[in-house]
Design a binder for these strands. Structure first.
Length: 419
RNA sequence: GGAGAGAUGGCUGAGCGGUUGAAAGCACCGGUCUUGAAAACCGGCAAAGGGGCAACUCUUUCCUGGGUUCGAAUCCCAGUCUCUCCGCCA
């Protein structure tokens, strides 16, 4: 969320920056409501001041007047609150401003490749898709999941279940032991306000699974990514500058409705309602966001390198970035069956955008209170990594060679086959 | 599920109708001392919002929402959360 006070000062610049994103915001309403809101505040404050003076004087002859002022304040208050909530609706639906590094563009076609690694594998046979491979091995069962749960779920069985678990452990070990992240095993549910903090609400409510709980203790949602719960670890806090940067990693299931993607990736486990993901989150001093983004992206890249998976790094254009991001790198892994790269990680700096929503701050050396910077990135999406291994390491007979780095996590198993 | 206790600044913790935005301690920042550091001593230090170029000033905030009162951190009601004990349970 943007700080209104800052926004007011550089309004034209703000307006121009935000137009790089394909969103439609009523700036006139925003300005008008802001003005009205402040007028009401001024009226209210001068009356409150008057009342306070009477109360302090303890002059009984003025008590009646004070009562009258109270009712007047109440009337203004109601109006002001209404204006303020209208203002908040507009404000909370405005996305972050793209950083100046970010290329201008409309959609994914305008993203720019930054680098490419390794060679894509060549096969002397026609490579199969991950779901063919998995079903032939009898280790991915989509039909069973449809029967028990519905579409976009899967049963992962046998050695592939082991592979899934191994990937999670492997990635966590790299990030905790080599990359300096603290491992967290967080709740998989979040309150409405927590979801607001990272920007999933109010705008993207349709993508979230809401839980039906009869108690009146606030709405609860399944997390669509561990970013939500890890980033909110500093919600409503003023942390010490010495405690920054904070780096957290968690491997969790993620739950998404995928509401806008009917008919997209319906086959296989590319796009599921539930999937595992290892998530990296950094809380940093606000000026260190972009450095941290490079660092974080490299941490994710390290996993791909160790697994020897071919990938490329792209920078997202302004129109393709997520709501809270100021700058995003996607890592895309090569999928032989599709003959193209597919997203396996997305690393974003959110500048102070989420921090303002969460009220997450720190004291700097001058004792000023500043908003923290927040970053999140996948390191990596487990499901898609599993897919990438199946497809890139497949053999002619349908067996899968296990990448060397993973074997210690799989009881030294070297190959997955039906035998 | 039953029975109690509590929620105050970055943290610990006093206050229980009127200079209390809030004692004290810790942490943090500045200074004296020291070759440097520590210790000791002195000083500073809540947040949000409004007005002002600024110095500054005003308002709100002691879990949340209502209520009583000229006046509420303090009294009343409702809710949320936390802790302790009992029961149940992975």
């Amino acid at each position: 969320m943007h700080n209104l006070k800052v926004l007011r000062k550089n309004f034209e610049h703000f307006k121009k920056s935000i137009e790089k994103r394909t969103v439609d915001i009523n700036f006139d309403d925003l300005l008008r409501l802001d003005k009205e809101n402040r007028e009401f505040i001024q009226k209210k404050e001068s009356l409150e001041n008057e009342k306070k003076i009477i109360s302090k004087s303890k002059d009984k002859s003025l008590f009646e007047k004070s009562k009258k002022i109270s009712t007047e304040i109440e009337e203004i208050n109601i109006k002001q609150k209404k204006i303020k909530s209208e203002l908040d609706v507009i404000l909370s639906n405005i996305p972050n401003i793209p950083h100046e590094d970010v290329p201008n563009g409309k959609d994914e076609n305008d993203n720019i490749e930054v680098s490419k690694s390794g060679n894509t594998p060549t096969f002397d046979f026609k490579p199969k898709s991950h779901y063919e491979l998995g079903e032939n091995l009898e280790m991915l069962d989509f039909d069973l999941a449809t029967k028990t749960t519905g579409s976009r779920f899967v049963f992962v069985k046998n050695k592939l279940a082991l592979l899934e678990r191994a990937l999670s452990n492997f990635m966590l070990d790299i990030h905790t032991l080599q990359n300096g992240y603290q491992e967290i095993s967080p709740p998989l549910m979040a309150l409405e306000n927590t979801m607001f903090g990272t920007g999933q609400l109010p705008k993207f409510e349709n993508d979230q699974f809401e839980l039906k709980i009869d108690k009146g203790s606030g709405r609860k949602f399944l997390i669509p990514t561990a970013e939500v719960i890890l980033t909110n670890m500093v919600k409503d806090k003023i942390v010490n500058q010495n405690d920054l940067p904070m780096r957290f990693v968690a491997s969790t299931p993620c739950f998404r409705k995928e509401a806008g993607s009917y008919g997209k990736d319906t086959k296989g486990m590319i796009r599921q309602h539930q999937f595992y993901k290892v998530e990296l989150v950094s809380i940093v001093e606000q000026d260190n966001c972009l450095d941290e983004l490079e660092r974080m992206t490299n941490c994710a890249i390290k996993i791909l390198d160790l697994l020897k998976l071919p990938y490329r790094k792209i920078i997202l254009c302004s129109g393709d970035m997520g709501f809270s991001a100021e700058k995003t790198y996607d890592l895309e892994v090569w999928l032989p069956s599709e003959n193209r790269y597919r997203e396996i990680s997305s690393c974003s700096s959110c500048s102070t955008f989420q921090a303002v929503r969460m009220k997450a701050r720190y004291k700097d050396r001058k004792n000023d209170t500043l908003y923290v910077g927040t970053l999140n990135g996948s390191g990596l999406a487990i499901g898609r990594t599993l897919i990438a291994i199946l497809e890139n390491y497949q053999q002619k007979d349908g067996s899968i060679i296990i990448p060397k780095a993973l074997r210690p996590y799989m009881n030294d198993l070297e190959i997955i086959s039906t035998k």
